[in-house]
Design a protein around this nucleic acid. Structure first.
Lengths: 192, 192
DNA sequence: CCTACCGATCGGTAGG
DNA sequence: CCTACCGATCGGTAGG
């Protein structure tokens, strides 16, 4: 009935999925932490899979929209790279639990949902790699193996949500500043 | 009877765990891909959990031993940092499937196994952070937030095994070279 | 929102 | 290594 009851269930499930994984979380686990019976959940959700696909497709869309905004802006490719880091931090601050499901739980999506998710993810990675490539062409980044560099940077960004859940008090400004050093500028002293 | 039958089962399970996750892989799945009945597995393993803990504690020990060797050597801290990257690549080349379980499947360990695993992991991370700290003190790395830098570098190293499974033909020498750029030297042109 | 219940599948054992 | 089977739990439905 109340639409926010559904949201409560989904956010509660996100928390459990993040802690135990989708497969190890039963609908009875979700019901228990909502103080209701398993059968009652089905007045608000259509299936366990429904919860997962809602969570994952929602955050995947958020990332895609952020990427679209960054690509369209009239900035240098290097600036776009920095902006991608900022956008990850912004999205994570808003919904860390859901974002933390992306790295390992997307494999449990089924049917259309997994196809949609993979399409969004592949599109995102292609966009990211093309920004990296342009940075090299424009001379703002060293010539670098695009596949490895994009994997390396995205690994950190993908796991940032889990790190943030464990270190919730660190100032986002510091996260942003330090991550730009780690991922782009370099840690060695004789680098800028 | 034959001891390598057990190893076959374990490596077969590693492959399935990597693809579908521990919880979603049934003992019947493992049996089927070994062309035997589920009950027959129990002549070689004592439980499904036995397989997971064997896999994870074995690779965790490999990483710990590599770390011990690196720490003891009379090199600069910066050299040790580079050596840690090399050691990850070496271990991954040897057993990518098992290594790829570490980031997300360790949560399904139970009892003593999970305690042992966490102890090894925490020890590894402390060692890693203390090397980073020494690099900063020695002036070979910029002053940097140790927590974030160690999280960032280890995220990439932890996910390298999954990347390697999807990109098996890339020369390990190139992986090593490029990753040192990505993780330490920096990608920006005016860095060395 | 609950009680009562479904068929399927789970990890694992007995016994040969 | 197999057949036969166990109790427990799974996601989900019927009906109120």
């Amino acid at each position: 009935m109340k639409p926010n009851r559904r949201l409560e269930i989904i956010s509660c499930a996100a928390d459990l999925f993040q802690k135990k994984g989708y497969s190890s979380t039963s609908v009875r686990d979700i019901a228990k932490s909502m103080n209701m019976e398993a059968a009652s959940l089905y007045n608000h959700i259509s299936s366990k899979q429904d919860i997962l696909s809602t969570l994952l497709l929602e955050v995947a869309s958020e990332f895609s929209e952020a990427m679209d905004g960054i690509i369209c802006a009239p900035n240098s490719s290097l600036d776009k790279l920095y902006q991608i880091i900022s956008s990850h931090i912004k999205i994570i601050i808003g919904s860390a639990q859901a974002v933390s499901l992306i790295p390992s739980e997307w494999v449990h999506l089924e049917g259309n949902a997994i196809q949609e998710f993979i399409a969004l993810r592949d599109r995102y990675e292609l966009d990211f790699k093309s920004i990296l490539t342009k940075c090299v062409e424009e001379g703002s980044l060293k010539p670098v193996n695009i596949e490895l560099a994009s994997f390396s940077i995205l690994s950190t960004l993908r796991w940032l949500s889990s790190w943030h859940i464990k270190n919730p008090t660190v100032d986002p400004t510091i996260i942003e500043e330090e991550l730009k050093k780690c991922l782009i500028d370099g840690l060695k002293v004789n680098s800028t």
